[in-house]
Simulated assay, not measured.
Amino acid sequence: MVAGIEGEPTLTIDAAMPGPLEQLDLQWYDKAWPVLAGPGSGTFLILPPGGGGAAVGWVPVRDIAPPGLPSRIAAATGSPEFVALSADGTRLCAVTEEEYEYWIIVRSLG
């Protein structure tokens, strides 16, 4: 749903524009955050970004400093890419890096 031919972005951000990570942070907070965290605690699940994340599996997290999640992930891993799932498992949100763009992907699973 995120990678491959069927992966279609909900929103794209030109990586060559000034301040692309800041724009990615703002758009993530605007488009994906409300769908992902929903009302309530703001807790969601994330696959740890970087090598070995899939082996760890889904980890419950709460972003206490929004917006800025993609930038914080990029600072730690070198890339803003990550996959997150709503706590109830019905919505998938991701950030991918595709050639000259960042993609935000928001999908309903149910």
Rank of each mutant, 00 (worst) to 15 (best):
I5V: 10
I5Q: 12
I5H: 12
E6D: 15
G7R: 05
E8W: 10
E8V: 14
E8S: 10
T12C: 12
I13R: 00
A15N: 11
A16Y: 12
M17D: 09
P20N: 10
E22T: 10
E22P: 00
E22C: 07
L26F: 03
L26I: 15
Q27L: 06
W28H: 07
Y29F: 15
K31G: 09
K31T: 11
K31S: 14
W33V: 06
W33G: 04
P34I: 09
P34D: 08
V35D: 04
V35R: 07
V35H: 08
L36C: 11
L36F: 01
L36E: 03
L36T: 06
L36S: 00
A37N: 00
G38V: 07
G38W: 03
G40K: 01
G40E: 09
S41I: 14
G42H: 04
T43R: 14
T43W: 07
F44N: 05
F44M: 03
I46E: 11
I46A: 05
L47P: 04
P48Q: 07
P49V: 02
G51V: 13
G51Q: 13
G51T: 14
G52S: 05
G53H: 06
G53Q: 01
G53S: 01
G53W: 08
A55F: 13
V56G: 04
V56Q: 13
V61T: 13
D63N: 07
D63K: 08
A65E: 14
P66Y: 00
P70F: 04
P70V: 06
S71F: 02
R72L: 03
R72P: 00
R72A: 11
A74W: 06
A74K: 09
T77S: 15
T77F: 01
G78E: 07
G78K: 13
S79H: 14
S79V: 11
F82N: 06
F82S: 09
V83N: 10
A84Q: 02
L85D: 05
L85P: 03
S86I: 05
A87N: 07
A87P: 09
G89D: 04
G89N: 08
T90I: 03
T90F: 01
R91W: 01
R91A: 02
L92D: 00
A94Q: 01
T96K: 07
E97Y: 06
E98K: 11
Y100E: 15
Y100M: 00
E101W: 05
I104R: 01
I105R: 01
R107E: 09
S108L: 08
L109R: 13
L109N: 03
G110D: 12
